[in-house]
Write a protein that binds this DNA or RNA. Structure first.
Lengths: 138, 138
DNA sequence: GTCGCTGCAAACTCTTTGCAGTGCC
DNA sequence: GGCACTGCAAAGAGTTTGCAGCGAC
């Protein structure tokens, strides 16, 4: 999956990754930009987006595109689930919780009140499987 | 949850709901707009968004804000899960599948190849629970 | 020295909103 | 007839991109 696209280790990239790993708040690109800007005042938001994308492609960080409009980024690659606050949009980690959302709903963890869950499967549809098979033949 | 905000049954609203219920493809607002436009050529995209929002608030349809950037809408309120194609973004329903994503991953359903899942919990964070409690006291 | 990466700004996508007019109840 | 709703267009949020110059290797 990792495609080794990171060819140069720029100061901007270092700082973006450091700041992301330092917090557990799963910042949006804009929030991370604000953090990085304290250390690199001339950095641009475009650079933050470009580096986040590259870091995601190299499996160094994870992009969270779940509920809510903005994407959030997670510097922790260990398998864990997230919980999003319906009121303020804050996202936290859930450790040691059941993989089964129905069972998990019953446990209230770390001060959060769990109201529900979103579960979406990801895969390849019959049409695209067909196309992939065709390409491999060619 | 339903707040009964639908006060008038306009032709636009009827057609939007009819077209959404007619398909099982979970269209985006723009896709639905195109469908509706065939029957009401002068309708505007803003009207589609406004009506979708009202229909969601009245628990008549569901808004799917999972992976991918655009929201998609679902006219079927029965409990079911969705699967999104990694290649083309198409979203389909999954019926009769285990609630447990780990078990479900093993079953390949209706021609789809299931690669993984996204699971996010929704709740109220400790901070917002505090604020809500405060408001209720006042 | 090369060329991947940067800052900047403009563009793009999706969604929301202000406004004057329309038509449902 | 009142006012919820409409079409239109402009604005808004979040993200991407084109370009000339910079700096990591």
């Amino acid at each position: 999956m990792a495609e080794e696209k990171l060819q140069r280790n720029t100061r901007q990239r270092q700082v973006i990754l450091e700041e992301l790993c330092k917090v557990t708040s799963h910042p949006t690109a804009a929030e991370l930009f604000a953090l990085v800007q304290m250390r690199l005042p001339r950095i641009s938001l475009g650079t933050v987006y470009r580096n986040l994308e590259l870091l995601v492609q190299n499996d160094i960080i994870r992009k969270l595109e779940l509920g809510g409009r903005e994407a959030r980024y997670d510097g922790n690659l260990n398998r864990h689930y997230h919980i999003r606050c319906m009121e303020c949009g804050r996202v936290a980690d859930l450790h040691d919780i059941s993989d089964d959302p129905v069972a998990a709903k019953l446990e209230n963890v770390e001060g959060w009140e769990i109201m529900g869950h979103r579960l979406e499967f990801i895969g390849i549809c019959p049409q695209c499987r067909g196309e992939k098979a065709e390409k491999e033949i060619k």
